[in-house]
Structure formats: structure tokens, C-alpha cells
Amino acid sequence: MTDERPLVKRHAWPVRVWHWWNAVVVIVMLMSGLMIFNAHGRLYWGQYGANTDPAWLEIGSTADSGYLKVGAVQVPTTGVLGYWQDSTGAVQRRAFPGWATIPSGYSLSAARRWHLFFAWLLVVPGVLFWLWSFVRGHVRQLTPTRNELAPRHVLADIRNHARLRFPAGQAALKYNILQKLSYFGVIFVLLPGLVLTGLAMSPAMDAAWPWLLDVFGGRQSARSLHFIAMALLAAFIVVHLLMVVLAGPYNEIRSMVTGWFRLPPERADAKAEEVA
């Protein structure tokens, strides 16, 4: 049986290449970054912050349990954060467990080597992709319009996503408002934010570009913002993968590999068109 739904070109080659490149680079950055955090599992606001200064976030351990403390709220995390067993069964008290870090056994120097090498693999293609996006109008495809940003429109799109009613027909060729907000947010806010807060933690860059400290409010604030941006990026990846699986992984992955996407037919009831 042949499929009569049309195959359409959906993703340009720079999008596809950068996507799969980042699928590797971002995961390495995330996991090596968690190991770097393991060297000091506390976050602060301001210019300075060390063990005797108040931390707004801490991953730590008591004699026999692990905990995550955010502000005044403390959550038990035994087995996952702060207190966990490594592959040999030995108890470890580092913040993030071995299965989530690169390398899996504690090594700040190795994690820094991974992180600061892959940072270049993130930044150089990232800057090229940015330039391409602005020159070839990709950024316009991802920029929400005023109408799309109306609360009624956003709510309707959230309802459609929640009911797993994904855009069909011609609407499936354009980014919907939730996609625009998340992709625009990741590409033009989170990723550059991660790079700049990362640079703000470098003592040499703080001397070269003192404005980094002013923009982020100090090196320890930059470290906190770097961590928060990382958490948002990790959340994006989880939701993104979930959406790919729910929307039809074969068609979605093919379109990101070959560029070709099989257009789902317009629904008879066309309720999804409410948001259009």
C-alpha cells in the first residue's frame, strides 16, 4: 500500500546538521557540567559565595540520607542526589550520581576538560547557525507574532497540545506558538545565556569583558543562572523527546534527518484550526 499523503520539505540542512551535532554536544555539556557542580554543590547570589555564606540551593547529605535544599524547602533525595550508591555499591556523597555525569567517577579535572573542549563545539557552530538564521530568515519563522502571543491563542494551543491534537495539513508546516516560544527561547535566549554566564565564571574573561559581571550581577550569580539555564534546557530536552514520540517518531525523525516530512491530512472536525 502506498502512502498518498504528500512528502514535503520541512527542515533546511543547517537546521538538521546543527540539530544532530547539538544532540551530542549539549548532552556532553550537561553531563560534564553536572560533574563540575559536584565539586561544590552549593549556589549563591552575588559577587562571592563559599561554604560559610548563605546558599540558595544546596545538594548535600546527612549521615544516611541525601537532600536538595532550595531556599527554606528541603526535599529528601536519598539514592539520587547527595547520597547514592555507585556501580560497585559504595555510598557516594557527591550531588549528582555517576549515571548522570561525565566522567561517571568523581574527577573535576576530567569534567572540566570535556566541558571546556565541547564548549567550543557548541559555540562555533552555534554562532554560524545564528548568522544563518538571521541571514536566511529562520529567525522570522521562530518569532511569535502579536496575535499568537494573545493569551487566548496561547491557551488554546496549550489545550490542543494537552489533548495531543497536533497541527495537521498546512498548519503542520509552520511552527505553532508553543514551538516558537520553546525553540526561540532555547536558540536565542538559553544557549547564548549559558555561554555568557559560563564566560562570566572565567576570571580572565571578567578582566577582558568586565560588563559580564554587571550584566549577571557577579560571578556567583552567573554560576546560579548557568545552573538554572541548564535545568531549563534539560527540561526542554525531556519535553521535546516526549513530543517527538507522541507526534509520530518515524515521521519526525525522518524530517530532521532527510528534511522530508509526510504531511498529516486535515482533520475532518478541524478543531485544531481554532488556534490558527
Binding site: I36, F37, A39, H40, R42, Y44, Q47, Y48, G49, A50, N51, L108, R112, M201, P203, D206, R219, Q220, R223
Partner: peptide
């Protein structure tokens, strides 16, 4: 000046 430990903390 600020002293930045490789571990992540800072002291001035």
C-alpha cells in the same frame, strides 16, 4: 579582588 576556586566558590 575575587578569589575563584576551580571547584566553583568565590571569596573576596
Amino acid at each position: 579582588t575575587r578569589h575563584d576556586c576551580v571547584e566553583g566558590w568565590s571569596a573576596i
